[in-house]
Design a binder for these strands. Structure first.
Length: 702
DNA sequence: GAGCACTGC
């Protein structure tokens, strides 16, 4: 296994980065009895945040914005909303909102709080995430929700007038929607001086957060009645315990094997306690689990190995929270999802970090191990790497994202001057201009950069990327809205294919059964059709390597809601927008035109193709087509002549039609187009004459 | 021949 500095041999160096010593938590609240014996009320009083109850309420009373700095584990997320309610902030029909970046966190925190308050979830305490509104207009006083949902609520209620206090939790994560929300909340404060904001943030971000909310407003700033404008900052200590950090002595070559062997040696050498392993993705998780379980005899007995990633059905995710049986050791093998949402209350957690994450993220992960008792953190990289190679913080999503959705959301909320918008982390003007250009070319904003009517407002209403929304609008003109909505639903889930290690060949074969010469979008329609014809059978999915959990609607409450439910939601929205639900009865040309109408900016032309073989395919296709199989067709985007290739997961891989449109790009060693459809270049000038001048797309002889 | 995670009326 990898070699770590071990306790007892040579004192491990617990140096952190320049912030220093972050991992030495105060252990002043050592409750050896732990959870389980005390009443819920006693437990609440034992949380570190309890000491600050009066101070928090005072600051919220007297300041428009209060920034709470605290390590996770202080209890701030569950307690502060309750304190606020106890202090009367939810009286007179008002509500307290608490946002989270992730759905899982919303659900778990809401259910914990309702339990503590002794009320039924959905009554006084409720939550809202996409597809799940567990609130009651009459009763709900504390509402947990994702920040994305709160942004959507602003479309109907721009001042968020039903909330008296809005707590934005995990603001240091700087997720895209958190940052948009913070920018908008700052604006709302000017119109609603009585609104209170509580921003919870980790140490490093607190100052910049404060100066963001402190920035002088223009115009009237004379002292009026009401709360002080400059933000208050309160630091709440964590409940954490010592976490010892061990670094690999040498870089590991295979981090999955290194992680597995570290788990095994922890199991052999360490006393009771669960293990949490961070890996990069589902593939690695499956591989690690296979390695851990394949020879589970002998010493590995007693290990309960559980995967955790977002694609997992909720019931499987819940297994992670169940108590570990006596004499067993739980090993949770997880993606980032566990970095912030998860507190395992069972016993202490060991933690392995494997990817070049930021130092802040590494610290966050290590903190997972010290929640209920002292823990250990094994980092599968060297200390030198940590000190010298890893960046201090991740880049805010705002500064590395496509801003098309962001811009249209702001437009829909009446923010006209996008370039002058006061962001917590300003995106580059170039990125904003790029987004404005795309929206202009889609015809959803006009020459004055105002939303067009009705297209602009319709696109803003649909909770999808504007290019997908435009595709749906166009499907109305082409009489194929049913098909295009299905495509949109499939494109918005991670993958409809069931992939696991060792079954790649079977998956490829299954794909061929549905593969359409036109490309991936049409292939999706074939899969969906087969799924519906099977009566939405899980057995059918299994046989065809289709991921049942990606397709099925949530008739079992805890299943993730996917293609079916998104499709139903989009059909409802379409009807509301006046789009006729209509099938084109197999005419795939109109479907491809509708796709083109949304994604014309992603058009590419084949530059080089080495044809090797020809073969007749495909039984699902209405017409038999000859497809040329070749290797690594080099494409160039029409817009910017960027070199791109068809991703090997596409049905058009090695088929290489002359003209294609892609849905998205993944950048690895090359730029790969994922989800590709073939088009006729004349459609480009047809659907986007302003974007493509005729001479640009004249096909060159190949 | 293959990069990840998260989110949304």
């Amino acid at each position: 296994m990898s070699r770590f500095w071990k306790p007892g041999t040579e004192k491990p160096r617990l140096v952190e980065d320049e912030e220093g010593g972050v991992l030495f938590f105060s252990a002043s609240l050592t409750s050896s009895s732990g959870y389980g014996y005390a009443t819920l009320e006693k437990q609440r009083q034992r949380l570190p945040v309890y000491k600050y109850r009066t101070a928090i309420l005072y600051l919220v009373e007297t300041h428009a914005t209060t920034i709470i700095v605290g390590e996770t584990g202080s209890g701030k997320t569950t307690q502060i909303p309750q304190y606020l309610k106890e202090a009367g902030w939810a009286e007179g029909g008002r509500m307290i909102a608490c946002t989270q970046p992730r759905r899982l966190a919303v659900q778990t925190v809401a259910s914990r709080v309702s339990e503590e308050m002794g009320v039924r979830l959905g009554d006084e305490v409720g939550y809202t995430i996409r597809f799940e509104d567990i609130t009651n207009t009459e009763l709900t006083r504390i509402k947990f929700l994702t920040d994305g949902v709160l942004l959507r609520e602003m479309m109907d209620d721009p001042l968020l007038s039903k909330y008296s206090v809005i707590m934005v939790d995990e603001a240091h994560e700087r997720s895209l929607s958190t940052d948009i929300l913070l920018g908008l909340l700052k604006k709302i404060q000017r119109r609603r001086p009585e609104l209170r904001l509580v921003i919870s943030s980790a140490t490093i971000e607190a100052k910049s957060m404060a100066s963001f909310f402190n920035a002088r407003r223009q115009g009237r700033d004379d002292e009026e009645q009401g709360p002080r404008k400059e933000p208050a900052i309160l630091s709440v200590e964590g409940r954490g315990f010592n976490v010892q950090i061990f670094y690999a002595e040498e870089p590991v070559s295979d981090y999955i094997r290194a992680a597995v062997s570290t788990v095994v040696s922890i199991h052999d050498e360490e006393p009771t306690g669960d293990i949490l392993v961070f890996l990069t993705g589902q593939d690695d998780i499956d591989a690690a689990i296979q390695l851990l379980t394949e020879d589970s005899d002998g010493r590995k007995k007693g290990l309960i190995v559980l995967p955790l990633y977002s694609g997992l059905p909720r019931a499987d995710q819940d297994l992670v929270f169940s108590p570990t049986p006596r004499g067993k050791r739980k090993v949770v093998i997880s993606t980032n999802i566990a970095e912030t949402s998860l507190t395992l209350e069972v016993t202490d957690i060991e933690n392995l970090v494997v990817a070049p994450i930021s130092k802040a993220s590494a610290r966050q992960r290590a903190g997972r191990a010290g929640r209920v008792r002292p823990g250990k953190c094994y980092r599968l990289y060297t200390e030198e790497y940590f000190m010298n190679e890893m960046s201090a913080d991740g880049i805010p999503e705002m500064q590395r994202s496509n801003l098309v959705s962001t811009v249209i959301q702001l437009k829909a909320l009446g923010i006209d001057n996008i370039l002058g918008f006061d962001w917590p982390a300003s995106p580059s003007p170039e990125a904003l201009i790029r987004a404005l250009e795309v929206l202009y070319s889609l015809g959803v904003i006009d020459d004055d950069a105002k939303l067009t009517s009705p297209a602009g407002f319709q696109v803003a209403e649909i909770p999808l990327d504007p290019m997908v929304s435009k595709m749906i609008l166009a499907s109305n003109d082409y009489g194929c809205s049913e098909e295009v909505i299905t495509i949109a639903a499939v494109l918005s889930v991670q993958s409809i294919w069931f992939s696991a290690r060792g079954v790649q060949k079977e998956l490829d074969e299954a794909k061929l059964r549905f593969a359409a010469a036109e490309g991936d979008h049409v292939t999706f329609l074939n899969v969906h059709k087969g799924f519906i014809q099977s009566g939405k059978s899980s057995n059918w999915c299994h046989k065809n390597h289709v991921n049942y959990h990606a397709m099925v609607s949530g008739h079992l409450k805890h299943l993730q809601k996917k293609v079916d439910e998104i499709r139903q939601q989009l059909r409802r929205i379409a009807q509301r927008l006046g789009i006729a639900l209509k099938s084109c009865e197999g005419d795939m040309q109109v479907v491809r035109k509708a796709v083109t109408a949304g994604f014309f900016a992603n058009a590419c032309r084949l530059e080089v193709s080495i044809v090797s073989t020809c073969r007749e395919i495909f039984d699902f296709s209405p017409f038999k087509t000859k497809l040329a199989f070749s290797h690594n067709g080099l494409y160039k985007t029409i817009r910017s002549s960027q070199e791109v290739y068809i991703h090997p997961s596409s049905v058009l891989f090695r088929v290489n039609p002359k003209w294609v449109i892609f849905h998205s790009i993944v950048s690895t060693d090359r730029q790969y187009m994922r989800n590709v459809i073939s088009i006729d270049p004349s459609w480009l000038t047809e659907v986007a004459p302003q974007f493509y001048q005729q001479q640009q797309i004249n096909p060159r002889p190949l």
